[in-house]
């Protein structure tokens, strides 16, 4: 499927939506379908400072576990608490209700290191 056009993407299959200085981060539809049924999401604590592409959490499916990397640096301002009781939201709505956390963006220039929807589409086409 086509990638939502209003987002930027990382090579680790995270997406980010930037609204002025707030970034919302999630994993892509491709990532959730490769992982399978997600059973647990470990997110950073609100107030944590995170650096671009650093490990900020873990996503567990029944038989796999993968690290979560933040696509941008900043301070975590909010995490998606709905995932605690319903991690399957990430499977059902990866680009909407299944978002993971929000950041106060530190350096908007970092978005230059991210992929456009088209480039990300190419990346996953290659992977398949």
């Amino acid at each position: 499927m086509a990638q939502p056009p209003d987002l930027l993407y990382s090579r680790e299959h995270e997406w980010v939506r930037i609204d002025s200085d707030t970034a919302t981060i999630g994993i892509t539809d491709y990532a959730q379908s490769s992982l399978g049924d997600i059973v647990y999401v470990e997110l950073p604590k609100v107030g944590t400072q995170v650096a671009q592409f650093s490990n900020t959490g873990v996503i567990e499916s029944v038989k796999a576990v993968s690290d979560l990397y933040t696509p941008l640096s900043g301070e975590v301002t909010e995490v998606n608490e709905a995932l605690e009781n319903d991690p399957a939201l990430v499977n059902r709505e990866p680009f909407a209700g299944g978002w993971l956390f929000k950041l106060q963006v530190k350096d908007s220039k970092q978005s230059e290191n991210l992929l456009s929807p088209d480039s990300y589409e190419e990346l996953i086409a290659e992977a398949q």
Binding site: D37, V39, Y40, E60, V62, K63, P87, A88
Partner: peptide, 9 residues
Amino acid sequence: RVDETRAAR
């Protein structure tokens, strides 16, 4: 076949 997803969730 056992529902492992439910077991973990």
